[in-house]
Each structure stands twice: as C-alpha cells, then as structure tokens.
C-alpha cells in the first residue's frame, strides 16, 4: 500500500509537470502564430496622426482682417 501511494505520487509529478510544460509550450507556439497571423493578415488600421489644428489665422479673409485691423487701430488711436 505504501509503495503504491509513493508510486501514485511519482506518477502524478511526472504526468503533472509533463502536462503543464506541454500545454504552456503549445500555448507559446499558438500565441506566436496568432500574433503573426493578425499582424500579417489583419493589421489594425493605422490611425493617421491627427494634425493638431493650428489657430485658423489664414481662414480670416484679407478684407475682414483689414477691417478688424482698422477697428483696432481706431480703438488704440483714441
């Protein structure tokens, strides 16, 4: 009976460690494969870097700008 129990323990250790390593090694392989497949065939659409909008200086029409400038000048000239 005692030898039997010991034998069971040895079996459990060998099969247990064997399974843990086999499983995790196959998981390593599966992850590499998955990452390769995804990066190769289904890459995430690259988000174009959104250009930071500058203050829309040039959007103001020259004519309007001249009007504003005149108004400011008039204000300051008081």
């Amino acid at each position: 009976m005692e030898v039997d129990l010991f034998q069971q323990g040895v079996d459990l250790m060998l099969f247990g460690m064997g399974t843990v390593f086999t499983f995790l090694i196959s998981l390593v392989g599966a992850i590499y494969l998955m990452s390769w497949v995804i990066s190769r065939f289904f890459p995430e659409p690259v988000q174009p870097a959104v250009a930071v909008q500058m203050a829309p200086v040039a959007v103001v029409e020259p004519r309007i700008q001249a009007v504003i400038q005149a108004a400011i000048d008039k204000h300051r000239g008081k």
Partner: peptide, 23 residues
C-alpha cells in the same frame, strides 16, 4: 510569450510538495 515557460517552471513547487506529502 516566452515568459509562459517561467509560469510553467514555478509549478514545480506544486508537484514536489505532493511528493513531500506522499513521502
């Protein structure tokens, strides 16, 4: 993914302890 092997190695503790209890 290689670090999975470290997670596997650390399980040695489980099975050595089983042997300890059986012993």
């Amino acid at each position: 993914p290689k670090t999975l092997l470290l997670g596997a190695a650390a399980q040695v503790g489980i099975f050595v302890t089983v042997m300890g209890a059986v012993g």
